[in-house]
């Protein structure tokens, strides 16, 4: 009852991308032809909805990009970001070289270990 077409991955992906484009187009046409053409033109509807208050009670209706992910940056990942941003990527050459020199040391250690354990 179910026909299965076995394709190779590339063809399948490209084919399904075509299907994606086609079905999006179909959906768009359905939506556009069914939905009402007229739009509200009164200014009450074109203002953003801020709990019923006028839009000028807030400084800007855009949220600054730096505040977008504070849930991750200052919430869950706070410790991670304190380490990554403030301790690791602090722009001080001496602190960078600690990591870089440690890396050379690690590589040297690995080569010594391989040499003596082969």
């Amino acid at each position: 009852m179910v026909t299965q077409l076995n394709l190779d991955p590339w063809t399948a992906t490209l084919f399904l991308s075509g299907v994606l484009a086609f079905s999006s187009l179909v959906m768009y046409l359905i939506y556009v032809s069914l939905s009402r053409k007229t739009t509200h033109s009164s200014s009450e509807y074109s203002e953003p909805y801020i709990g019923g208050e006028p839009a000028n009670i807030i400084r800007s209706i855009d949220v600054p990009a730096r505040n977008l992910f504070w849930g991750i940056v200052r919430g869950t990942g706070r410790k991670l970001y304190v380490f990554l941003r403030d301790q690791m990527h602090n722009g001080v050459l001496n602190d960078w070289s600690v990591y870089m020199v440690t890396y050379v040391g690690l590589l040297a250690l690995i080569s010594i270990i391989i040499y003596f354990t082969r």
């Binding site: 890396y103 040297a108 080569s111 010594i112």
Partner: peptide, 26 residues
């Protein structure tokens, strides 16, 4: 064998610097 080990380790360090791989990405 020893010389190759050292040479490979050092050249890897230089190449990871050029391609900005952690920890040579700063």
């Amino acid at each position: 064998y020893a010389a190759t080990a050292v040479a490979l380790a050092l050249s890897l360090w230089a190449f990871t610097f050029k391609s900005a791989i952690f920890p040579n990405h700063f």
